[in-house]
């Protein structure tokens, strides 16, 4: 159900350059919850490498469900069922295949949640956690990785003097950046953000958005947001979802200036009844 997918067909700055290569794509992805509810219906959508893709849509449209498929979060509850595939490039791995280990998937595809959820451990241990799970014990290697990840999350200068304090002593925005550092530590290829700023004030929100723009040089990003302006500010591509369907996917400048479908236009202009 893809809408007008001509890139830049009606954008502010028509861009004839070819889209960047694919990092992943969902192919005819449907998802059923254990209670039989079908939350996603045959979603086919590209995820471009080193770009930010925003998923928008009203509550209950399936955008968070879709996001969680990318790191097999739904496996944690029995009875949930996937159909179709999420293919990770360049190795063409179907993340949803039975023989693919969800733990391995989560190393490659990390998640940052709505509310900052640091572990009840020190700042250092929060970031080192994923590496320790992977069996890394070399202290020098851990030190380097922790610093690199905290720098990547724009938090290093604020916490380098107090790495042994508990993470929950940090401010909300800092905690969220700590969670981003923790997600970065395993060198993921894709970062998933599920409404990462909805619990933050405008300044902390701006710093996370700035960070997202920096991070896309390293990783590919998928973000779910209720804040349409945020999607417009941070993303390169936008997908509009409604009732478990992908209504339209296009470049963000096209979606916010002249979307191809009336449903999209009604939603982003606040005409959604």
């Amino acid at each position: 159900m893809l809408g007008s997918a001509r890139p830049g067909a009606a954008g502010l700055t028509p861009d004839a350059s070819p889209p960047p290569p694919l990092k992943a794509e969902s192919r005819d992805l449907s998802f059923h919850y254990g209670n039989g509810f079908k939350a996603l219906n045959a979603i086919t959508m590209p995820v471009h490498e080193h770009r930010v893709t925003a998923l928008i849509g009203p509550s209950g449209c399936g955008k968070s469900t879709f996001l969680r498929c990318f790191n097999r979060m739904h496996d944690l509850y029995p009875g949930n069922r996937y159909e179709g595939a999420i293919v990770l490039h360049p190795d063409n791995t179907n993340l949803l295949a039975d023989d693919v280990d969800p733990i391995e998937v989560r190393m490659r595809v990390s998640m940052v949640f709505q509310k900052p959820n640091p572990f009840p451990k020190s700042i250092y241990e929060n970031v080192a956690y994923g590496l320790r799970v992977r069996g890394v014990t070399n202290k020098n290697h851990l030190d380097d990785k922790v610093e690199e990840s905290l720098r990547g999350a724009a938090l290093w200068d604020e916490v380098k003097q107090r790495l042994n304090e508990v993470g929950s002593n940090l401010s909300g925005g800092q905690q969220q950046r700590l969670c981003i550092a923790r997600a970065l530590a395993t060198d993921p290829e894709i970062l998933l953000f599920d409404e990462p700023t909805s619990a933050l004030d405008p300044i902390a929100t701006a710093s996370i958005e700035e960070l997202i723009s920096e991070l896309k040089k390293r990783v590919t990003i998928l973000i779910v947001t209720h804040n349409m302006q945020q999607a417009a500010r941070v993303s390169d591509y936008t997908a509009y979802m409604y009732l478990g369907e992908l209504i339209e996917f296009d470049r963000t400048d096209t979606i916010f200036f002249k979307p191809g479908r009336k449903e999209t236009e009604d939603y982003i202009t606040g005409r959604f009844g």
Binding site: M228, Q229, I255, F256, F257, K258, T264, E265, I268, T269
Partner: peptide, 9 residues
């Protein structure tokens, strides 16, 4: 209002 799409146009 930060208008978008048709409103922005």
């Amino acid at each position: 209002r930060q208008p978008t799409a048709v409103d922005l146009r």
